[in-house]
């Protein structure tokens, strides 16, 4: 490690599964240090058995989300200077999902709910068909595009209180995904997706608390997508028009 550090940073890291404890480590505080850098430094220099998850380190893959000082964040793009409180970082796994070990949690229920919300794309054409023309300025396409860049990090799912109160609630990410498909002219099961998104545990369970939108690291708005689903469930799916 470089010796470019300016003092020490105290890091409290969750060790164990549902039952466990916080272990305290001291690591060099460095300029431009991300929370993921800190976790990696702890794992490499002090606690080789520490379990955590990451892949791309650049905010694309959505693997490294953890709870940092009580709020879910993508740790590879979260600078320590922005989130430490009195020089202390407290790092836990995401909430609302079973814990596997230390900072890694099991995302199975999160992705199962994507399926339950009708999040699987159903093709209406094969690769031999001509490309389907989509008007990029049409209202449904704009709505889909505004919500499409989800990186599946589960930060919104972890931030949502309704998920923690109601285990059957599909959660913001799955419903956001459903909303993109309801607006996608190439999706062959738009009405089925809408029905699933409005079924028990679906969009009607959202209390519009807004934790998801406030915490989404890529600044999507699952709250708005869910509001769109609620409107569509009452007034019908968005009307699709052929491009001129």
């Amino acid at each position: 490690m470089n010796s470019d550090h300016v003092g020490l940073l105290t890091v409290r890291v969750w060790r164990g599964r549902e039952e466990g404890r916080f272990e305290t480590y001291r690591v060099p505080a460095r300029a431009n240090q991300t929370v993921l850098d800190v976790v990696t430094e702890v794992q490499r220099s002090q606690e080789p058995a520490l379990a955590y998850r990451f892949a791309c380190r650049v905010g694309v893959c959505g693997s490294c989300a953890m709870t940092v000082n009580d709020r879910p964040r993508w740790t590879c793009r979260t600078h320590v200077a922005r989130v430490r409180e009195e020089g202390i970082l407290t790092i836990e796994p995401l909430r609302n999902m079973p814990r596997i070990k230390d900072l890694a949690c099991d995302l199975t229920p999160f992705f199962e709910k994507w399926q339950k919300a009708g999040g699987r794309h159903v093709a209406t054409a094969s690769r031999r068909d001509p490309l389907q023309k989509i008007d990029p300025r049409s209202k449904p396409r704009l709505a889909a595009s505004a919500a499409i860049e989800c990186i599946n990090c589960a930060v919104c799912y972890s931030a949502c209180d309704v998920v923690s109160w109601n285990a059957g609630y599909l959660g913001p990410a799955a419903l956001n995904r459903a909303w993109t498909l309801v607006n996608d002219a190439r999706h062959g099961a738009r009405h089925e997706t809408l029905d699933r998104a409005f079924a028990d545990g679906g969009c009607a369970s959202c209390h519009s608390q807004g934790n998801c939108t406030r915490h989404c690291p890529v600044e999507l708005s699952p709250s708005e997508s869910i509001a769109g689903l609620k409107r569509s469930a009452l007034f019908g799916a968005p009307k699709l028009r052929e491009p001129a």
Binding site: D70, H207, S208, Q209, G210, N211, S223
Partner: peptide, 18 residues
Amino acid sequence: MHPLRGHRSYLAFLGHRL
């Protein structure tokens, strides 16, 4: 209040529901 919930939208939710 828990840092997760300290924002206007959540406070409006609490005000409405309570």
